[in-house]
């Protein structure tokens, strides 16, 4: 055994390193929203088939995450937030990540097709393609609107869950898609405002880098104002209910106020309290999405129990 091989084997990956390629934290959000999309659909799905549908949607999302890590290994290495991912950390080779991503992509789409229907499988395939190719390879490094269009990839899971249950797309499913789609830009721009150095170093054209922080604050406010009526509007469809409406009105009021506060601040104020408003907005944005989908689930439960 030479010294070189010894050194290489020191970095040999454990199972957890491969699992980290699938972006477990993103996956948990995918599992939750796909599950809600499936549960609020107006058809009853056998628990085993529902479980399989959510599992294969999650595996598909993981496959897309792995492909993203393969493609973005160079910029992940220079950003603090991502430099400990398996490839930049030297645990897993890029080729391994590519192989795992491609294999799991095909696997998840075929299995979702067998478990549910062809439209759901096609939508999952499109989601993986959209995230790995359209977002990661094409838009992320070329346009400051990367976050806006890339948000569509994260918005697909509840739609796929709905289609897995019903076999068709409907207004309710599209509004759930729209909720995540419109929520993504404010969520990421708040993050970009207080993680200012990272995206600069990596040369990723975030709006904060290309158009400045003033413009980003304005964009964040505009998208939040567009998001609010859409989020509340979902409450008036067949999947909405009293719980959802109450949550949507409360959460959106907070969100719009937070966006106004961010809009009114300038960099000096933000530096002075080390981006407290932006950080609070970002943290609440995670809760915001979780609460909306939890409320949809609660209303579906109330309907099933015959309470509304």
């Amino acid at each position: 055994m030479t010294d070189a091989t010894t050194f290489e084997m020191e970095n040999e990956a454990s199972f957890g390193d491969y699992f980290a390629l699938l972006k477990p934290r993103v996956m948990s959000l995918v599992v939750f929203t796909a599950f809600v999309g499936l549960m609020v659909a107006p058809v009853s799905v056998h628990p085993m088939i529902g479980f399989c549908a959510v599992l294969f949607i999650a595996v598909g999302a993981g496959a897309a995450g792995s492909l993203n890590m393969w493609w973005d290994a160079d910029i992940d290495a220079v950003m603090n937030r991502t430099k400990n991912r398996p490839i930049p950390a030297g645990k897993v080779t890029g080729d391994d990540a590519l192989a795992i991503g491609l294999t799991l992509s095909v696997f998840s789409v075929v299995m979702l097709w067998l478990a549910t229907n062809v439209l759901a499988a096609a939508l999952l395939a499109f989601t993986i393609f959209f995230y790995a190719v359209v977002y990661s390879m094409w838009l992320k490094r070329s346009t400051p609107q990367n976050i806006v269009i890339g948000g569509a990839a994260g918005a697909f899971p509840p739609l796929v869950g709905w289609v897995a249950a019903t076999g068709s797309v409907s207004l309710e499913a599209l509004l759930m898609f729209g909720l995540i789609f419109m929520w993504t830009p404010p969520h990421f721009w708040a993050l970009a405002l207080f993680l200012k150095k990272d995206y600069n170093n990596a040369n990723v054209p975030m709006l904060t880098v290309t158009h400045g922080r003033r413009v980003t604050r304005a964009h964040l406010l505009v998208y939040t104002l567009l998001l609010a009526p859409l989020a509340v509007g979902l409450g008036f469809t067949t999947i909405g209910g009293p719980v959802y409406l109450a949550v949507a009105i409360g959460a959106n009021a907070w969100f719009v106020k937070g966006a106004f506060d961010i809009f009114r601040r300038d960099e000096e104020q933000a530096e002075a309290d080390s981006y407290r408003t932006e950080k609070a907005f970002f943290q609440f944005s995670l809760l915001y999405l979780f609460l909306h989908f939890l409320a949809l689930l609660a209303d579906a439960g109330l309907r099933a129990a015959g309470a509304i």
Partner: peptide, 8 residues
């Protein structure tokens, strides 16, 4: 190293 390989 064997532990990591076993975990895999």
């Amino acid at each position: 190293l064997h532990k990591r390989r076993f975990s895999r």
